[in-house]
Design a protein around this nucleic acid. Structure first.
Length: 277
DNA sequence: CTCAGTGTTCAGTG
DNA sequence: TCACTGAACACTGA
């Protein structure tokens, strides 16, 4: 479920496993959709390369290879990075279910590193994309992204200015990657809930106080989610996140306020009329 | 069997 | 240019 926090978690995992290491073996699935420019060039670029660093902006992450094009990844809706040493995630209230298969199902890219560790990119629904870029942060598609709430959140004045003149509905604007990079459907809903703003409002019509509240909520949600490594079971119990899924009519917040669902900007939106206006 | 869905992109329209 | 809508992409899981 990759939005900013999940992508940052994936980047950190890749960094721990691969930074400073050399790729000794590469396997690319024969998938011309996920490998936008075909798997062959990716395999050639990675084979024998030393991974110098990792980076992220919005929902894109990349592996910088020493003196070669970087590998740029977008996880799509279902993409994930896995390592062979992955600790199983302890699921609350249920026996730890772990899929011990290695490489995992739907592996598109598998790297073996010089210390024996392996890193896999999996993508069941094939909406992820792998590309090669000489300077990923300075080229499309990354260069076209807006501010990243973790990397370069505008100050309060700049944020107010950014909303001014935007006639789009605020929920849609938050999802626009050219505006706020890395914000996806659940982060947008969580931020609007915590800021007390109705998702149908027009961005340009928010008051300065509402703009400030929105900015603070954006910062808080993103930094909190990243600080727990995007582990949903560690998100604060007060978050709408835990109760927004399923689009059932009987859902309510921890406070007992009913949760409504609507389609805004083509996406399912969960919001709480009692606290959002 | 049907359908929603945590992702982006593009064509068509206003 | 901006913004909106709907469709497309591909596939799983409810």
């Amino acid at each position: 479920m990759p939005e900013l926090a999940e992508v940052e978690s994936a980047r950190a995992l890749a960094h721990r496993i691969a930074a400073g290491r050399t790729v000794v073996a590469v396997h690319c699935a024969d998938d011309p959709i996920v490998f936008v420019d075909g798997p062959t060039d990716v395999a050639a670029a990675l084979q024998g390369a030393r991974i110098a660093n990792t980076g992220r902006r919005g929902k894109y992450l990349w592996l910088e290879l020493e003196s070669r094009p970087a590998l740029l990844l977008h996880l799509g809706m279902t993409g994930a990075l896995r390592t062979r040493e992955d600790e199983p995630i302890q699921l609350e209230g249920s026996p730890a279910e772990r899929d011990d298969a290695w490489p995992p199902r739907f592996t598109k890219l598998l790297l073996r590193l010089d210390d024996g560790a392996e890193l896999a990119f999996t993508n069941a629904r094939r909406l992820g994309r792998l590309r090669l870029r000489t300077d990923p942060a300075a080229e499309p598609p990354v260069i076209d992204l807006g501010f990243d709430p973790l990397l370069d959140l505008p100050d309060a004045d700049e944020f107010r200015q950014a909303l001014r003149g935007r006639r789009a509905v605020i929920k849609s604007l938050l999802l626009n990657q050219r505006f706020a990079a890395g914000v996806g459907n659940w982060i947008a809903d969580e931020v609007l809930y915590q800021a007390g703003i109705d998702p149908h409002r027009r961005a340009s019509e928010l008051s300065p106080d509402e703009s400030d509240a929105l900015r603070r909520a954006l910062q808080d949600v993103v930094t909190t989610a990243v600080s727990v490594d995007a582990r949903k079971d560690r998100f604060p119990a007060s978050w709408l996140f835990h109760r927004r899924w399923g689009r059932r009519p009987d859902q309510a917040t921890a406070d007992g306020h009913p949760i409504e669902h609507a389609t805004i900007g083509g996406r399912t939106t969960a919001w709480v009329p009692a606290v959002q206006s």
